[in-house]
Amino acid sequence: MRAPLALTMGDPAGIGGEIALKAWSERAARGTPCFLLLDDPDRVTALAHRIGIAAEARAIAAPGEAADAFAYVLPVLPIGMLPAVVPGRPEARHARAVIAAIDRGIDLVLAGAAAALVTNPIHKHNLHEAGFTHPGHTEYLAERTGLATAPVMMLACPELRVVPVTIHVGLAEALSALTSAAIVHCGRVTGAALRRDFGVAEPRLAVAALNPHAGEQGLMGCEEIELIAPAIAALRREGWSVSGPHPADTLFHTAARRAYDAAICMYHDQALIPLKTIDFERGVNVTLGLPFVRTSPDHGTAYDIAGSGRANPASLVAALKLAAEMAARRAGGASGERG
């Protein structure tokens, strides 16, 4: 039997618990794949009562029990008791459990006891006091797994995959951080992931320009000539199928999207505007370049609606489904080689 997905609790004051409960209780209608939740089972059951979801969270002793339990209860692998949680009110004393859930998830997936890691949203400021000084999950996972090269963030929905080369920095800083080497690295990691995890045998990458109208031959910016075109040439020399630099405003409509499997974008909003405009609910954050599959919903802790029962589980369900598909392809690819 295939191992379950491991879902971390995220910030317990956010909406992670609620969307996990909804993903489980609506599993038939939504087609949610089997997962276990790394959390405190008592607090999850109490949360279900509070927001009126007919769901029971039950502690399991080992990940192998999740598959059988999933049909009847939400399987929770306990990571210790949580101090009382008030939805919408993040507290530093929860930090230890939040980090423990991530650590346990990494251990499970590295050991093969979980098929993939799916993480609920955290709020990094609340984790600082507990010694978590990383900008986010991605950097923490990279360090824990001893990665030599930086992981790459992809955002995916059924219609579009985008990979921002620069991420959570101001626009001015993003522009100075943009290099040919960074674009090449993103292209390489994305191409390899498309092949291995997304079932795209011959990946086609489209690289977005930075400036309006792709700079119009240097009239409106030189990065296309100086940074982006050389990066495209370098990727082509490595054998990748790459087009661009494309003007960003015409890269994302339906006809244009048919010409590529992923778009490499130069800055955060260039990737996120099309993704959210095309599919606001089902965007998934995928970390490429890790030794295992990791996805997460494409939203934050949403403290403002935590505990109200109004959180939408669509992005988490999409993250669970994509993680299951990617993990199955990796496993299938391995067995195919054996056959």
Binding site: P212, H213, A248, D249, T250, H253, Q270, I273, P274
Partner: peptide, 15 residues
């Protein structure tokens, strides 16, 4: 604030 910020979304929403 800038060209592509609006044009990406507008062209997707109804060019």
């Amino acid at each position: 604030m800038y060209h592509d910020q609006g044009q990406i979304a507008m062209k997707l929403m109804g060019f």
